[in-house]
Amino acid sequence: MRVPFFETFDVPDAMTSRGVREKTTVATQALLLMNNEFVRKQAELFAARLAKLEDKTPRATIEEAYWLTLSRKPTERELELSLELLKSEGQSIANFCHILFTLNEFIYVD
């Protein structure tokens, strides 16, 4: 059996040759990124890393998170959306880190 995490992302069966890796886009992959405990744990570890920043303002945290995940600064609009998100009830830096892992821009490398 293939590892379920990898299988969700189309790792080829090692029993046969495969000229090209399937690239699929299915809801079970989204579910995994949204709800899987491993993914959540990485988001929490990412949040813990951001917590070590000297500048503890939300702005600095957001900017560093963008640099680390997307290799760029957030745009003004993204910064606004992010600040608004972090201010909302029930949200946390870990949630914010978690959602960055699901972004198309994070998953697909240019």
């Binding site: 579910l31 709800n35 949630n95």
Partner: peptide
């Protein structure tokens, strides 16, 4: 699998 949200969300 992965249908239920992680505890903190």
């Amino acid at each position: 699998l992965n249908l239920s949200r992680p505890g903190k969300l």
